[in-house]
């Protein structure tokens, strides 16, 4: 999955650094679907599409599990985070930092997360 997205991003003209960032963001998004939308249980489908337009690359990730509400998410304070001895909760933070836009919507039982990165030179 990481290699598939990386290959698409590379051929779209992104730099090595951008390709790496897209790869990590997609990994985080899918890990969140498996862990939180599907509770890490059973076999489920995650639909991943890479959509390329003239100025941007969008990775669209769809699932039919529990929806994520970005309104409930607060960016972690790293020092407090370490004190709490937690290991999870950094993924959304990473996605937000690595991509230009991260959007969520839920319709008809399908959750959709779109990770957007603009091509170099486009504004």
């Amino acid at each position: 999955m990481r290699q598939f997205v990386a290959k698409k991003a590379d051929s779209a003209g992104f730099s090595e650094k951008d390709v790496e960032q897209i790869k990590i963001a997609v990994d985080e998004a899918c890990t969140n679907v498996i862990k939180h939308a599907y509770n890490g249980e059973g076999e489920h489908v995650i639909d991943i599409a890479v959509i390329l337009s003239s100025d941007k690359l969008t990775v669209r990730i769809r699932d039919r599990g529990r929806a994520f509400d970005p309104e409930t998410y607060a960016e972690p304070d790293l020092i407090e985070f370490a004190k709490s001895r937690k290991s999870g909760g950094l993924g959304v933070h990473i996605m937000n930092r690595l991509m230009d836009r991260v959007e969520y919507k839920t319709k008809g039982g399908v959750n959709e997360c779109c990770l957007v990165k603009y091509l170099p030179g486009s504004n």
């Binding site: 990994d27 890990t31 909760g89 950094l90 993924g91």
Partner: peptide
């Protein structure tokens, strides 16, 4: 060669202890 938040989280979970 690669790290995601799950890996970073391990360092966070153990550093205090």
């Amino acid at each position: 060669a690669y790290i995601s938040s799950a890996g970073l989280g391990v360092f966070m979970a153990y550093i205090e202890e």
